[in-house]
Design a binder for these strands. Structure first.
Length: 878
RNA sequence: GCCGGGAUGGCGGAAUUGGUAGACGCACGGGACUCAAAAUCCCGCGGUGGCAACACCAUGGGGGUUCGAUUCCCCCUCCCGGCACCA
């Protein structure tokens, strides 16, 4: 056996053997139970980064573990190949997005292979290939037939200089990232999917999923089902004349109908029809609406704006008192939620309160909130439910009601008064707008005919193929400038028509790729092989996908089910959300006001004594740049770390071991490679241990190791076997249930530390050593499969690691004569006692009360109480 | 702003159901081996006091529940993720 550990020789040889034997090819039928484990597919940005290494190594550990446990395991891989970065790269280098993307895929695939991940490459897919995206188009048309697709006006970010729609990511502090121009809102026609039709099911079926509770909670809050009352605030007479829209008043929605007597004003969004009417002949309102048009559409930006508004001079009537109530235009009212209009109750709503304070509008508390009410300052308690008070003489019957009673009474009152009112369930969730005014995506299969309207592309003409040779220039969608693409005949009337040039949101691509892995080459969207593999037994990916991607994929699955394509209700039975890998971010504003990012290794950083960054300059020319703090590794911010250097220097096993031993998979981590050396040293030590054992001569009697009954073991060897079998149980639990790999590695390190302490060359000891080393190799195999494959071949010549089952725990090895208990006084550690595992409470108490330190702390007094926790501790309360 | 999460030695982390705080590593210090270096091995390593035995303090800050709190509850600070066109 080679005395030195040479990963550069071992790893390619092991990988070659795997490839030659199709080791990771998963059959679509098997007597074994199936286990389908998938990681979120990567965007082919150019190179793998440490987040990928973490993600796919976690998946790989589960692959090997479950395979050793006897499952038919599938781990596939693919490429989320459409999207914005390819267009940005094209603008920067003049290379078409297709070429850039395919080159990146080729390079990253090589990197994946050099990591040794157990991927079944026969199922690889790229979402930018027509074979894949044709089914996006086909399914879009099916949804359209079912009425789940519709067209409506949407609001987007508009860069007035580049004359182009900007993604939210491309808006930095309200300005276009390339031009530095102030961004505006612009309304355009968009295609939408009716995800809200599935809102209830998406909410209710969360309960049965094996997902982290935090993710389920985020999805619940995102869907945001709330029940409330929708009613009409009747227009005051002169307002009714002006509006003349056929409606008797302003429709509002509220979840707090019980506070109706606290209405002191009403507010509408700037885009509301009433605001437009008010702007006629009112310069202030018109100017305010114009002001609201400035800036982008991101909710985070809108929600942090200072609350502002103007009075419209239009009035509604309080539905109970009949008092005139003025309507304001407010920038905090969202057109996209409810009706774009709210009844304002500053007494019990925080945003209304802030608005009222700013514009000196009356604040009228009408619910008893248990604490004294002061209009000086908002307190969260003001928004609590409580008994109604101060309802006035027209509705005195409301006083004393609790929330539920109050809502009942209000609805009954409004109906009796002839005011349109109904209970309604609303959702925070909005329909899914899928139109993108971009080139590198799935073409939307619609043809716009002046005579026939929007016509679906006939199935026989699918896919609508995206031309692959265009290069975007930053101004608009190149497809819209390519007549060979958009000039078409109408499939219905044969007349001249125009092809839709918007493409689909890339979240569509990632909503069902894991089904297509299951049935490569299928002649339909999916076939029966998908039914065999679905649902995923575990889905692994970044916590940043907790809402959007996971919600869209769930919706898409349910829609496919309802079209009879699959039978599952949910795609992901279990979910492991990986924490983000963060790194420092450096940027600089360019002359135009756009933004430019720099990689951490291009930057020299100055720190203060506490390690805080005080300044940064470019290594190349010494110019000052901005430090933006830490954030997720991403292509656009140029702060990703390529694992290649680590692989070249130490090998893939060290890289895999390092990322798995450093932190639990769910933890967010700031990238550091400080202790990589330690990981490599451990693998080298493992190699040395096996080498020393093997060179001392083969041990044949593995499997006939003296068990506890045979009593052939010294106490030291018995302890070693105890530790071994404890470790097997611990690692099994960590891999299989806890999904926490750093503690599994620590346990194996402890085992090998103890093994290293045993200096015994007797035949019995050599047999135990064989058992320990074999099992340690099996326990580590899922994490570092290359070195373990090589070591196994030395420990058991003629057999292959990949065929081995997971090691079994020997219950006999876990039998102990005595156990140690902790002795506490008042909850503080004061000593230890050794007792038989079966020791009674009385025996334990007596032993504790004989302990000298315990007696010292008791100072002769009798203990007040003694708490015994079996198997753990005894606590004497003084 | 709203939703979700996090904070433990110089650093990464452990403590799984309320039961020994700091496992296992990294870095560092000391020693052995060596002509020397590398590699390897051994010892030490939260703070304060003490020769030591040991004692006290300590899990972002403040309060509470409990025989016992890193763990549960309330309040606060800072950081991370998401907020619908980054993926």
């Amino acid at each position: 056996m080679e005395s030195q550990y040479h990963p550069q020789a071992i790893e390619p040889a092991v990988q070659k053997e795997w490839a030659a034997t199709n080791a990771f090819r998963a059959p679509d039928a098997s007597p074994k139970p199936k286990y389908y484990c998938v990681s979120m597919l990567p965007y082919p940005s150019g190179k793998l980064h440490m987040g990928h290494v973490r993600n796919y190594t976690i998946n790989d550990v589960l692959y090997h573990f479950m395979r050793m446990k006897g499952w038919n395991v599938l781990m596939p891989m693919g490429w989320d190949a459409f999207g914005l970065p390819a267009e940005n790269a094209a603008m920067a280098n003049g290379v078409p997005p297709a070429k850039w993307t395919w080159d990146n895929i080729a390079y990253m695939k090589k990197q994946c292979q050099s990591m040794g991940w157990a991927i079944d490459w026969t199922r690889e897919l790229a979402t930018c290939s027509p074979d894949y995206y044709r089914w996006n188009q086909w399914f879009f048309l099916r949804l359209w037939e079912k009425g789940l697709v519709y067209k409506k006006t949407g609001v987007v970010n508009w860069d007035p200089v580049d004359m182009t729609v900007l993604a939210n990511e491309q808006v930095i502090d309200g300005r276009g990232w390339r031009t530095g121009a102030l961004v505006e809102k612009r309304e355009i026609p968009t295609w939408n999917l009716r995800i809200t039709q599935y809102a209830d099911e998406l909410l209710d079926s969360l309960d049965g999923l094996g997902w982290p509770e935090q993710v389920k909670q985020m999805q619940r809050n995102w869907i945001g089902r709330s029940s409330g009352v929708e009613f009409v605030l009747p227009y005051a007479p002169e307002t009714a004349m002006r509006m003349g829209d056929g409606r008797a008043g302003l429709k509002v929605f509220t979840t707090r109908a019980d506070t109706i007597m606290g209405i002191t004003f009403a507010a509408v969004a700037a885009e509301h029809a009433l605001a437009a009417e008010a702007a006629k002949g009112n310069g202030d309102v018109a100017a305010f609406i114009e002001e609201c048009r400035q800036g982008g559409v991101q909710e985070a930006e809108l929600a942090t704006l200072e609350k502002k508004g103007v009075p419209t001079g239009l009035f509604v009537l309080h539905p109970v008192s009949g008092d005139k109530v003025e309507v304001w235009v407010g920038n905090y009212v969202l057109m996209g939620y409810g009706e774009g209009a709210v009844m304002a109750v500053p007494g019990h709503d925080e945003r209304d309160f802030a608005f009222a304070k700013k514009y000196c509008l009356p604040i009228k508390p009408v619910v008893d909130v248990d604490i004294p009410y002061s209009t000086d300052e908002w307190k969260p308690a003001y928004a609590q439910y409580g008994r109604n008070v101060n309802s006035g003489n027209k509705f005195a019957a409301l006083d004393g009601s609790d929330y539920a009673q109050a809502v009942d009474k209000v609805v009954a009152f409004l109906e009796k008064a002839g005011i349109e009112a109904r209970r309604r369930v609303t959702y925070r969730l909005r329909d899914w707008g899928i139109s993108r005014q971009r080139y590198w995506g799935t073409p939307i299969p619609i043809i716009q005919c002046t005579k026939c309207g929007d016509v679906g592309v006939p199935d026989a003409q699918l896919p609508v193929v995206l031309p692959e040779n265009l290069v975007p220039d930053g101004s608009g969608n190149p497809l819209a400038k390519t007549p060979t693409f958009f000039e078409v005949k109408c499939p219905k009337c044969g007349g001249q028509a125009r092809r839709e040039t918007d493409t689909m949101d890339v979240f569509i691509d990632s909503s069902w790729y894991y089904m297509r892995y299951a049935c490569p080459g299928a002649k339909a969207m999916v076939d029966e092989r998908a039914q065999y593999w679905l649902p995923l037994d575990i889905y692994i990916g970044g916590i940043e996908h907790a809402i959007l991607h996971l919600l869209y994929a769930r919706f898409w699955t349910k829609a496919m089910r309802d079209l009879g394509l699959i039978k599952v209700d949910e795609p992901f039975a279990n979910l492991l959300t990986q924490g983000m890998v963060l790194n420092h971010i450096y940027s600089r504003r360019n002359a135009k006001g756009g933004i430019e990012y720099f990689a951490p290794d291009e930057v020299e950083v100055a720190h203060d004594e506490e390690g805080k960054v005080t300044g940064a300059r470019l290594k190349s020319d010494g110019s000052a740049i901005d430090y933006e703090g830490i954030g997720t590794m991403s292509k656009s911010k140029r702060n990703g770390v390529d694992p290649q250097e680590m692989i070249d220097r130490y090998g893939a096993d060290t890289a895999r071991f390092y990322v798995m031993q450093a932190n639990p998979p769910t933890d967010t981590v700031l990238w550091s490679d400080e202790s990589v050396e330690g990981s490599f040293k451990f693998l080298r030590r493992l190699w040395t241990m096996v080498h020393a054992h093997v060179e001392a001569g083969a041990v044949e009697n593995r499997g006939q190791t003296p068990s506890a009954e045979d009593r052939g073991l010294t106490p030291e060897l018995k302890e070693l076997r105890f530790k071994l079998h404890k470790t097997i149980a611990k690692v099994d639990d960590d891999y299989g249930r806890r999904l926490q790999f750093n503690t599994a590695i620590a346990a194996v390190r402890e085992l090998l530390n103890l093994y290293g302490d045993v200096k015994d060359a007797s035949p019995v000891a050599r047999a135990v050593a064989q058992e320990v080393l074999e099992d340690a190799v099996l326990l580590l195999a899922p994490i570092v499969p290359h070195i373990c494959t090589a070591l196994w071949a030395e420990l058991r010549p003629g057999t292959r690691l990949i065929d081995q089952p997971w090691p079994a725990v020997d219950a006999n090895a876990l039998v102990q004569d005595t156990i140690e208990l902790v002795v506490q006084v008042n909850g503080k550690l004061r000593g230890h006692i050794r007792v038989a595992p079966s020791a009674s409470r009385e025996v334990i108490e007596a032993a504790a009360l004989k302990d000298e330190t315990v007696l010292k702390f008791l100072k002769g007094a009798k203990p007040k109480k003694i708490v015994v926790v079996p198997g753990r501790l005894v606590n004497v309360v003084a």
